[in-house]
Design a protein around this nucleic acid. Structure first.
Length: 376
DNA sequence: AACTAATGCAACCGCATTATA
DNA sequence: GTATAATGCGGTTGCATTAGT
C-alpha cells in the first residue's frame, strides 16, 4: 500500500557504484545473503539505500548474469515474447536465461524497437504500418485484425491465468515421457496421462512452434477458442483484462456450455470434455506456460486428441526443451475443431495462413538483418 | 583537434503489489 | 480488516562513450 521511503534519507550516496562498493556488497551477500535489503547497507558498510543495493545486485553483481551482445535467438525471443505479452520485461526475462529485465528493456528500447520501426513494423502492435494507396489494404487490415485477435486472445488468457493462478494446481511429472494434467479441485489425485513424443521444438519459441504447427497441419484454418484450463472451461467472457478492447462474438457463439468444467484428469473416468469440442481426431493446440514465470508464456503445439483411449491421447508433440519444471505449468489446452474452422475464419475475416505469413515475414526480416546490417 | 549529436546502459523514481504485524 | 513495510516492476533520466562533422 504505502510507498516506502527510500533514498530520500540524507547522507546516502547515489549514482554510479564504485568497485569498492561493489566488493562490499558482493562480500556481504556471499557471506550472509541479502536478507532484508533495507537492513543490508549499514551491515555491509555501505552508504546506500537498500533499494539501490538490491538493484545493483540484481542487475549487475549477481553471479548468474550474462552480459554482452544478445544472440539472434535471444533477439527473436524478445520480439516474440514482446508481441505476446507486451512490456512485461520481468516476465520476458524469465525466459532469457541470465538476462535481466533491465538489460532486456534497454536492449529493446535502444535496438529492437528501432529495428522494427525501420522495417516498417510498429514495435508496439507488431504489425506492419499502414501504407496508403495499397490496393490490398483492406485485405491486409482484415488479416491484421485477425492476427491481433489471435494474439490478444492468447494474451488475455495469460492474464486471466495470473488472476486464477493461486487457485490452480498443476501436474505431476514423475515420468518425463508422460504428462499429467490435474484439475484445480483435486491436484493430489492421479492425473490423466498423455503420452508424448520426444521434444522436438525449441522451448518457448512461440513462433517456431506456430510455424511447426502450420507445417504439419496446413489445412486447418482457425481455432475454436474454447480453452480447457485446469479444471474449468473458459470462454472469452471469462477473461479479465483491463487492457482488452477486443470482442469475440463469433467465437463465443461457438463455445459449448460452461456449466461443466472441462477436466482432462485421470481421476475422472469420464472426462468432462464436451463432445462437441473434443471429438476423435480433433486437432488440439497445447498451450503451455511456465509456472515459474510471473507471466505465463505460451507454447503452441498440436497433437491429435483421441477421446476413445484415455491412455493414449497421444501423437502429442511437446515443444522441445520443456523441462519437468516447465511442465509443472502445463495447465492449458487450447482446442480447436477443424470442422468449425471455416465458419470461424469467415467470421473473423482472416485465417491462420495469413497470420503465419505475417510472422514469417517479420522473422525473415529480422533474420536477414543482423544488428550490424545497414538496414538497422 | 574541437565541438556536437547519437548511442548505450546503469541507476533512479515512483507506483503497484505482496507480506506482515 | 487495516496500516505499514518490503519488494517488484516499468518508465525515465543522466552520464560516459562513440561517431560524425
Amino acid at each position: 500500500m504505502g510507498r516506502s521511503p527510500c533514498c530520500e534519507k540524507v547522507g546516502l550516496k547515489k549514482g554510479p557504484w564504485s568497485p569498492e562498493e561493489d566488493q562490499k556488497l558482493l562480500t556481504y551477500i556471499e557471506h550472509h545473503g541479502h536478507g532484508s535489503w533495507r537492513a543490508l547497507p549499514p551491515k555491509a558498510g555501505l552508504q546506500r539505500c537498500g533499494k539501490s543495493c538490491r538493484l545493483r545486485w540484481t542487475n549487475y553483481l549477481r553471479p548468474d548474469i550474462k552480459r554482452g551482445k544478445f544472440s539472434l535467438q535471444e533477439e527473436q525471443s524478445i520480439i516474440q515474447l514482446h508481441a505476446l505479452i507486451g512490456n512485461r520485461w520481468s516476465a520476458i526475462a524469465t525466459h532469457l536465461p541470465k538476462r535481466t529485465d533491465n538489460e532486456i528493456k534497454n536492449y529493446w528500447n535502444t535496438h529492437l524497437k528501432k529495428r522494427l520501426t525501420k522495417l516498417g513494423i510498429d514495435p508496439m502492435t507488431h504489425k506492419p504500418r499502414h501504407h496508403h494507396g495499397s490496393g490490398s489494404g483492406h485485405a491486409k487490415d482484415a488479416a491484421n485484425i485477425s492476427h491481433m485477435a489471435q494474439w490478444e486472445s492468447a494474451r488475455l488468457e495469460a492474464e486471466a491465468r495470473l488472476v486464477r493462478e493461486s487457485k490452480l494446481q498443476v501436474i505431476s511429472t514423475t515420468n518425463p515421457n508422460q504428462l499429467l494434467i490435474s484439475s484445480s479441485s483435486d491436484a493430489t489425485h492421479q492425473g490423466h496421462v498423455i503420452n508424448k513424443a520426444p521434444p522436438a521444438l525449441p522451448c518457448l519459441d512461440v513462433l517456431r512452434a506456430w510455424q511447426g504447427t502450420w507445417s504439419t497441419k496446413p489445412t486447418v484454418r482457425n481455432v475454436n477458442s474454447t480453452i480447457i484450463s485446469g479444471g474449468s472451461m473458459m470462454s472469452m467472457d471469462d477473461l479479465e483484462s483491463p487492457t482488452s478492447t477486443l470482442n469475440f462474438p463469433h467465437i463465443n457463439a461457438l463455445n459449448p456450455p460452461m456449466q461443466n468444467g472441462v477436466n482432462i484428469n485421470g481421476i475422472n473416468e469420464n472426462p468432462v470434455v464436451p463432445s462437441e469440442v473434443l471429438q476423435d481426431n480433433v486437432n488440439v493446440i497445447y498451450g503451455c506456460m511456465d509456472a515459474c514465470a510471473a507471466t505465463p508464456a505460451w507454447f503452441v503445439e498440436e497433437g491429435t486428441f483421441n477421446s476413445g483411449n484415455d491412455e493414449e491421447v497421444g501423437n502429442v508433440i511437446m515443444p522441445a526443451g520443456v523441462s519437468n519444471i516447465m511442465m509443472e505449468g502445463f495447465t492449458d489446452v487450447l482446442v480447436y475443431n477443424s470442422s468449425l474452422a471455416g465458419e470461424i475464419s469467415d467470421n473473423a475475416g482472416g485465417n491462420f495462413e495469413e497470420n503465419k505469413s505475417y510472422w514469417d515475414s517479420i522473422l525473415n526480416l529480422v533474420n536477414a538483418s543482423p544488428s550490424g546490417s545497414p538496414v538497422f
